[in-house]
Structures are given as structure tokens and as C-alpha cells.
Design a protein around this nucleic acid. Structure first.
Lengths: 340, 340
DNA sequence: ATTATAGACCAAAACGTTTTGGATGTCAAG
DNA sequence: CTTGACATCCAAAACGTTTTGGTCTATAAT
């Protein structure tokens, strides 16, 4: 049997109204009754029925995150860390985080529609944006509070947090150029992803700035996974004039590239330089350790969570657009003689 | 403005009751009105307010998962995969999955109390059980439907899904013994975890069965992470009479151990054999590839989800206890000459 | 002509809160 | 004595559903 306000009211001989107001520290209830109410509530083990609260308040105190099966999975370490940041942050202010993995049979937007119009969530998080992103369009059109992890390219205005992938990539290429590399390969994800688009932009900018020849055959596209990186690496190494250095769209791919290199008998860090993006924990303990562009994943998640909670509460956002500058972490995979 | 049953009722000149019943295909509403109601609902873009439904039905259609900060994080690949399985399964039958990361300041059990008595969730998932697990005690005491990923040791009866860690570990040790190893180290997590306990049991059983000497100094405890494995590996390699083979509690640790070995200049697979547990995707692409004990993570998650949904709906469970037999996957880290 | 039966519908209650708009009593000031 | 202010309390409405327990009408059976 579960305890309700009515039970407490009956017990202390007050109305439900008074009990509710006492528990919420309204100032129109006598000090004594307030104490009495609170004590009995504790004694009876009263816990408010949040569903009823939500119905009355017309708020869900819940934030939604929809993962499409094609997007990043929970097993992507960088993404997991961002998510942990979001969760930490929103939990602190009493919000729940609702995670849906979109059934492949169901249209992803339909899922948004359900969750949102069904009042299940009062704000959503969009992850890994695409250059033109239908989810963003949908959410804007339906006036749903949301924050995106990543920008889009079609000039719509919406709140986002993003990392300056172009700058990160420029730093990587610059570093490799400084080491004397002239044939630099790029193992990349689909250019539909905004992050890949900007990385590509940074890559080309830096190649030009360093006066390096642009060779399109050195740009290989694959899945943003280790397996994808492995395949792309194999493709690059089997070319007649293979690159001496490779940058990648994320660390998982970089690890895959390193595997492919090692399988070819190459000594990563000496025969071939590899540089990643993200700085997942594995980057620090791989062999050789991985040079990469660090994104403050956890802090980034916290920021996303913070903004989203604000939006969901209808507060104005102090910063609509946040662009975080990543930093290059140089390790052995680009310079094996570098010992820590 | 959001559409409610009342709006539809007004529009079709029927009562709210009839509209509700029409939408739910009750047989006491005329075929024509049913059609009319459904059509108008579609036209107006009606979506039921699930909060109201839940209040009325006294069900949340939501399953809870509480991650304590000390337990596995979302960034553990094996765990992420299990979770994806759970999520896939429960989404298919319309349940939500609520993930809370327990604030370190808040007592974990208190969080359970809140979510459960607050009627936020109608079933919970307990992951990575401990030999004596307070969460299990709590849930049993409060009669909350739950399924555990892992057993406990104190003889309480509750539904669980677990992997036979003892058998997996026996297979690993047997394999190493067959290769001629006699000094086998064990890099393990805290024995409080049930999985570690059973691994330890399997380890000792196999050592005895293979007539290998038990040397307690070869058992090193550390965090169930790559970093933990690295440290434990260093400790083992700096001993006067180091092991020639090492088994570990999970793959992340094994990767850490491999790193430590390689930093010592050891050739993993030749100078030292390393064997993991889980078979995360990384195991297949590490260098050398990792011999490990495979757990069907995704399927395991689906099973957990399936059981939990059944319980939450009050259906009797066909199988209370599921113990899955893992299989040994032999790769290069125990036998470098093994080329695939 | 009465009584059943079935088909179509609905008002009201319920779920457990919070909010609104008073009501009541006391006391001090005028 | 009246007025106003203040402190304390509460009934009723509201949130959007589903369920309960009907009513009413038309037709069929007796």
C-alpha cells in the first residue's frame, strides 16, 4: 500500500491542501503544523507520486535522447563519456534522462513525435549532427526545446555545443608537416556528418597552408569505427605510393589504422605516423600511444546537460552557441622516440 | 496548443468516454463513430498524454537502471553492448529505459527508493552484482520487480541472468596449461563482485585440475579498467619470478596488461601469454589480437530486457535463473604463431 | 403487452498532485 | 464598535486519461 497526501492529511487532521503546502514550505502554514506534517510524512515513508506531479505541472522533468541505430552506439567510448557528463549534470538538478534506441523499423522522427507530443520529455538532445539534419528541422518546426551536440550547415539558428573540428584537424596536419611528412592521408567518416565536414575543411586548409600537394586518393571514407579504420588503412597501404602519415576522424578509426599498419609489418611512429581525434582513454594506453586531438568529453556533456535543463525550464540561455577549442596531444604514434 | 481527448470529443459530438473507447477498439462503439474518431484524431495530430495514462493506469511503462559511479560506466564497451541489447528489447514493446547515474553524494539505495516509490519505474535492472548485494536485499524487501545481471552468494532467490564465469576461467587456464605454461598470473577485480568471485573459483579449480602450483603472489587485484590492468601488469612483471601467462577479469584489463608487457619489451604471444574475458570488439583488432572468453553481450541484454518487461507486467517468469555458457576464443595473445 | 437482449452511448469517479480563491478567526488600530 | 491586516486553513478545480456503472432506444422473444 502506497502512502499519499490523503493518508498524511487524515493522520494529522488537516486538509490535503495544507499538507501539500506544508511539505513545500509555503509560508501560509503554521510552524507547528509544518513540523507535524513533515514528521508524519517521514514516519509513513511518504514519497510523492511524480507521475501525478507531472500531470499537474505539465512538465516531465525528463530529457530525451534518441539514438538511431546508424549513429554512435553506447559502446563508442567518446560518446559514452559525453553521455555520462550529460547524465551527471541533469541528475544533479533532478531531471531524468530517457534513452531510446530507435527501432530500425520505426522512422526516427516518428519517435521524436511520440516522445514529445506524448509529454514524456520536455527537452531533447541531438547528437552527432549532420550537415543537413532533419531532426533539427523537425524540432525547430515543432518548437521543441533542444540542444545539439554539433552544428549544421544550413544556416538555421539553434543552440548547440560543438568542438572546432577544423582547428583540431589543422593542428594535427601542421604537426605532421612539422615532422617532415608530405604525403598525408585522411581516413574519414561520411561527409554527411558535420564533424567530418569541418575536419575535411581543416584538413584542406592546413594542406594548403603547409604547401602540401592535395592528393584525393589519400582521402578514404569508412565507418567511424575501428573496423572501418582497419579497412581504410589496408586500402591506403596497398596503394602504389602510400602516405607516410595518416590523420583520422576519431580515435577508434586511428586504432584500426594502426592495426592495419602493424599487420603490414610497419612500425607505427617510425615508418608511419598516425593521429586520431577525441582522446579516448584507450589512446593513452595503446601501443604505441596515440597522438590525438583532445575533446573534453565529460565537460562537454555537462555543458550540454546544463543548457538543456535551462531550456526545458524555459529560462533564457546565456550562450546559444558554444564552440570549444580542442588541443593536440602529441604521443608516440607520430613520434616513437617521444618517451613520456 | 496540445490536442486532448476533449478536443476530439467536441469535434465529433461524442463524449470523451466514447472517444477514448473508440481509439482503443472497444466493441461498444459503432463502426462509423470509431472510424470518425480515428480519422479526426489523425487529422488533429492527437497524441495521448502518457503521463495522464500512467497516472490512471498506475504503471510507468518504464524500466530503471541505476549506475553507481563506482560500477561500470557507460564507456565500458561490454557493458554498453549489454545495455544496447536491453534497450532494443524493451523499446520494441513500448517501454522506456530510464538511466540514472547515482550522484556520489546521494546514497544509492536512496535513489532506488525515490524512483520506485515515486512510481517512476515499474521494474529495475541491477547490474554487476556483488557477492552480498544490498541492492538486491533492498529490492527483495520492498517487493520491487527486478532482474539482476549476475548472481549473489547469500542464497536469496531472485531472477537473474549470468554468465558462467567459473567455466570460462577454467577454459582459459586449461588452454594456457595445454600450451605448457606453469606460472599463470591472475589480474582480477575486487572479489566483492560476484563475477570475480566465480572467476577466482574457476581459476583455482583449473590450477588444481592441471596440477599447477598455487602461488598467491601471482594474483593481483586492481580496478576493472585498462589502467587497472596496466598497473597490475607492471606489478607482476617486476616480480623476481614473473608469470609466463596471465588471465584477467575482463578485456579492458587484458589490454592494460598487454600494454605493460610491451612497455617492458616483452613480445605478447611469445614471451608472455595474455587472456581476457568478455570479447569486446577491441579484442579482435588489438595487437596482438586477444584470446578471450566470449560473452554474448547483446543477446544477454535482450534476455534481461525480456525478463524485466515480463516481470513489470506481472506475468510469471518462465525461467527465473539463466546461466549462460561462454566460449573460449583463441587468438594471438596466447599464441602468436596463430595467424587467421 | 410485457420482458429480454443487444447496441450505442455517456456522466461521474478515479488516479495523486498543485493551484486558485476564498473562509475563518484573532488582534490592533481607528 | 468597526475596519483592516494578518495568520492559518481549506474546498474545489484542474491536469488528461481510463474505468465503472449505468441510460436509452430499438428490436426480438414470450
Amino acid at each position: 500500500m502506497t502512502i499519499t497526501l490523503k493518508d498524511i492529511a487524515r493522520r494529522v487532521n488537516r486538509s490535503v491542501t495544507t499538507v501539500s503546502r506544508a511539505l513545500h514550505d509555503y509560508d501560509d502554514v503554521n510552524e507547528e503544523t509544518r513540523e507535524l506534517v513533515k514528521r508524519t510524512a517521514r514516519e509513513l515513508g511518504y514519497m510523492p507520486n511524480v507521475v501525478a506531479q507531472r500531470l499537474q505541472k505539465r512538465r516531465a522533468d525528463t530529457l530525451g535522447l534518441i539514438l538511431s541505430t546508424s549513429g554512435p552506439r553506447l559502446s563508442d567510448p567518446h560518446f559514452g563519456e559525453v553521455l555520462a557528463g550529460v547524465s551527471d549534470e541533469v541528475a544533479q538538478v533532478g531531471f531524468d534522462l530517457l534513452i531510446s534506441i530507435s527501432d530500425p523499423s520505426l522512422d526516427e522522427l516518428e519517435l521524436y513525435r511520440q516522445k514529445i507530443s506524448g509529454r514524456r520529455v520536455d527537452g531533447v538532445l541531438v547528437v552527432r549532427t549532420r550537415c543537413h539534419d532533419e531532426r533539427v528541422e523537425f524540432l525547430l518546426r515543432h518548437n521543441v526545446p533542444f540542444v545539439a551536440y554539433g552544428r549544421t550547415l544550413d544556416g538555421r539558428d539553434f543552440p548547440y555545443v560543438d568542438v572546432d573540428h577544423a582547428a583540431g584537424m589543422r593542428a594535427s596536419v601542421q604537426h605532421l608537416s612539422d615532422l617532415g611528412h608530405r604525403r598525408i592521408g585522411f581516413v574519414t567518416g561520411s561527409p554527411d556528418f558535420t564533424l567530418v565536414h569541418y575536419q575535411m575543411e581543416g584538413f584542406r586548409q592546413a594542406m594548403t597552408a603547409c604547401a602540401l600537394p592535395a592528393d584525393e586518393s589519400l582521402v578514404v571514407e569508412a565507418d567511424l569505427t575501428q573496423r572501418g579504420g582497419y579497412g581504410a588503412g589496408q586500402a591506403l597501404f596497398s596503394q602504389s605510393d602510400p602516405p607516410t602519415a595518416i590523420v583520422t576522424s576519431n580515435d577508434l578509426m586511428a586504432l584500426g589504422v594502426m592495426s592495419a599498419a602493424q599487420d603490414q609489418g610497419l612500425d607505427v611512429g617510425r615508418d608511419i605516423a598516425v593521429s586520431g581525434f577525441d582522446d579516448i582513454p584507450l589512446a593513452e594506453t595503446s601501443h604505441p600511444t596515440l597522438t590525438t586531438v583532445r575533446q573534453p568529453a565529460h565537460r562537454l556533456g555537462q555543458l550540454l546537460g546544463h543548457m538543456l535543463v535551462g531550456l526545458a525550464r524555459g529560462e533564457p540561455l546565456s550562450e546559444q552557441h558554444v564552440l570549444i577549442q580542442p588541443s593536440l596531444i602529441i604521443r608516440q604514434s607520430t613520434d616513437l622516440d617521444l618517451w613520456l
